[in-house]
């Protein structure tokens, strides 16, 4: 017990601070990834060959953007877009510096997740809405997003946890957070206990997030 008390006395504040940084950068990045990815996913579905407004060229271009974005290794993207990051938030370091590459890298992924969730919505419901004279916008708002809500929420859990994993990598280039802490103390200074504590906090947080996501998705779904 005493050992633990000593450990937390020494590193507790540090762990808490970096855990907060990690949560901050991942939550904000996930939010912005959806700001970009949600319309992207909707556009992919709507312009697809069987969509409400089929458009081959737009669909193909969006598809390419998404695929290029997704195939770009994150660690490289992180470095390549540093000038863009500086332009946008004034620094490439810390939480603010991490949010830009995390968002850019996750948005195409989120776009695909949203596309997947929306294409699971029963085509019969889309047709029914059309038969009542619903416009494309009304179908997107009132049918796709509403009927696909449970799947969309499950997607948020997956996207968030993926971003969480990337955030540890961002730590390697000065983003801070738990991943950075684990590398600096565990790998570079051989203080394994800090690394272990950081990893344990990561595991607990991811588990918690996934459970809350699953619960919310189940609770909101009115299908039986």
């Amino acid at each position: 017990m005493e050992v633990l008390a000593d450990f937390f006395a020494q590193y507790g504040d540090l762990l808490l601070q970096e855990a907060w940084n990690t949560i901050l950068m991942t939550v904000i990045s996930t939010f912005f990834a959806y700001v970009i990815g949600l319309p992207l996913g909707v556009a992919l579905v709507v312009t697809s060959p069987k969509g409400l407004r089929p458009h081959r060229v737009v669909n193909a271009i969006l598809g390419w953007i998404v695929n290029i974005g997704r195939s770009f290794p994150f660690i490289i993207l992180l470095v390549v877009i540093i000038p863009f990051t500086r332009l946008l938030v004034g620094t490439s370091l810390g939480v603010a510096g991490a949010i830009v590459p995390l968002t850019v890298s996750a948005a195409p992924f989120v776009g695909r997740m949203v596309e997947q969730s929306l294409s699971e919505v029963d085509a019969g419901l889309i047709e029914a809405a059309q038969s009542f004279g619903a416009s494309t916008w009304q179908i997107v708002w009132k049918v796709y997003l509403r009927e696909g809500v449970s799947s969309l929420i499950r997607g948020v859990s997956i996207a968030y946890i993926t971003i969480f994993g990337y955030a540890a990598m961002a730590g390697a280039v000065g983003a801070g957070g738990l991943g950075d802490l684990a590398i600096r103390y565990g790998y570079q200074r051989y203080i394994g206990s800090v690394m272990v504590a950081a990893v344990v906090i990561c595991i607990i947080w991811v588990q918690l997030f996934q459970s809350i996501g699953d619960y919310a998705a189940r609770k909101i779904d009115k299908r039986r």
């Binding site: 029963d122 019969g124 047709e127 038969s131 509403r146 299908r223």
Partner: peptide, 18 residues
């Protein structure tokens, strides 16, 4: 025009989340 024509379907096509 469509809003003035009602339609029903084999599988009912009710909105499950409403």
């Amino acid at each position: 025009l469509r809003s003035r024509i009602g339609m029903i379907f084999q599988n009912f096509s009710l909105f499950q989340q409403r």
